[in-house]
C-alpha cells in the first residue's frame, strides 16, 4: 500500500506529466451488490480537514440521503467521487474494478456517474433541448461530436425526458431564461440523459415550491432501483419523504447511519445536528 500511495502522489492528476498512468478496467462490476466504496479518505485544505478518514459504502440500486451540518464535508465528498478533488489518502472504487482516483472527470462521467450541482449549472446560452442533447449518453470524442446528428431514437429520448421534467413547453427556450426551479429540473433532466449508474444529487429541492418538491421526490424514488441515487439535502421533510437509509456526516466522517427514525434518535446526532430547530 505504501508504495502505491507514493506512486499515487507522484502521479497526481493535477500535477501533469502523468501520461503513463495505466487506466484500470472501465466495465462496472457490481457483483457484490455494492456500487461505491469510499475507504479511509482524508482531504486537507490549508490545514483544515474537510474529510477525515471517511468510510462509506453505497449499495447498488439504493436511494441514500446524506445529511449533515454545513462544513460536514458533503460537497467535498461529491467532489472526490466525481474527480474534482483528489484526496490526500484513501481509496475510492466504483464497483469492483474501477478506481475512481485514477480517472479524470469526463472519464468518471463516462463510466456512469452523473452529478447535479448544488448551484444549478446549466448551459445558459443553449436552449433546453440543446442542454439535454449535450448531456445525452453518446460518443463524446471530438470528431464524432462534429459529425453527430440526432437520430429519431435520440429525439424520442429527449422528448421523453422533457416530459418527465415537465419542460416540453420550454424546449426551445434559452436555459438562462428559466426560473430557478426549472433550472433544477433541467439539471436533473440532464442527469437522466446521461443515463448513469450512480446519480449524485446535491440539494435538488433548494428554491422549489412544495408541489415541485413532491414531484422531485416522486422522480428520485422512481429512479432508485434501476439507478443508484445519492442525495445530499438540508430539507428534513424532503429527506424523510424519500429516504430509506440516511447517513449523517459530521466533521468529515460518518457520525451515524440508518433509517430516518434511527438517526433521529441517535444521541450524538441530536447533539450536533438535529438538536437545533431543524429536526422535529
Amino acid at each position: 500500500m505504501k508504495t502505491l500511495d507514493t506512486l499515487r502522489t507522484t502521479m497526481r492528476r493535477d500535477q501533469v506529466w502523468e501520461i503513463m498512468v495505466p487506466k484500470t478496467g472501465l466495465e462496472l462490476d457490481i457483483s457484490h451488490g455494492t456500487i461505491l466504496y469510499l475507504e479511509d479518505i482524508s482531504v486537507t485544505f490549508d490545514g483544515f480537514r474537510a474529510i477525515d478518514r471517511l468510510n462509506l459504502y453505497i449499495d447498488a440500486g439504493e436511494l441514500r440521503c446524506i445529511i449533515g451540518p454545513n462544513g460536514a464535508g458533503k460537497t467535498t465528498m461529491m467532489d472526490i467521487i466525481t474527480g474534482k478533488t483528489r484526496p490526500d489518502t484513501g481509496t475510492a472504487w466504483f464497483g469492483q474494478t474501477i478506481d475512481l482516483l485514477r480517472l479524470s472527470e469526463p472519464e468518471i462521467a463516462s463510466v456512469g456517474i452523473g452529478r447535479k450541482f448544488q448551484k444549478p449549472t446549466v448551459f445558459e446560452h443553449h436552449s433546453v433541448m440543446e442542454n439535454l442533447e449535450l448531456a445525452m449518453a453518446a460518443d463524446k470524442r471530438v470528431w464524432p461530436t462534429l459529425v453527430a446528428r440526432l437520430t429519431p431514437e435520440q429525439h424520442a429520448r429527449i422528448d421523453a425526458v422533457l416530459e418527465t421534467i415537465g419542460l416540453q413547453a420550454h424546449r426551445a427556450r434559452r436555459a438562462g431564461a428559466l426560473s430557478h426551479g426549472q433550472k433544477q429540473w433541467l439539471e436533473i433532466g440532464m442527469l437522466l440523459m446521461q443515463d448513469p449508474h450512480l446519480l449524485l444529487v446535491d440539494e435538488p429541492v433548494a428554491g422549489m415550491t412544495h408541489q415541485e418538491m413532491d414531484r422531485t421526490a416522486e422522480l428520485l424514488k422512481s429512479l432508485a432501483g434501476r439507478h443508484t441515487v445519492v442525495v445530499v439535502e438540508h430539507d428534513m421533510d424532503f429527506v424523510r419523504s424519500i429516504a430509506n437509509k440516511v447517513t449523517v456526516l459530521h466533521q468529515g466522517s460518518v457520525l451515524a447511519e440508518g433509517t430516518m427514525d434511527e438517526v433521529q434518535n441517535d444521541a450524538r446526532v441530536i447533539e450536533v445536528y438535529l438538536g437545533g430547530d431543524e429536526g422535529h
Binding site: P106, E133, L134, T145, A148
Partner: peptide
C-alpha cells in the same frame, strides 16, 4: 453550428460542468 460547436460554447460558459457530463474538455 454542429454539436461540436455547442460543446465548445458549453465549455466557454461552464467548463467544469461540461467535464462532468463526460466531455474531455482539453481535447475539444
Amino acid at each position: 453550428t454542429s454539436k461540436l460547436g455547442r460543446v465548445t460554447v458549453a465549455i466557454r460558459d461552464a467548463e467544469s460542468r461540461t467535464r462532468f457530463i463526460g466531455y474531455r474538455v482539453e481535447r475539444f
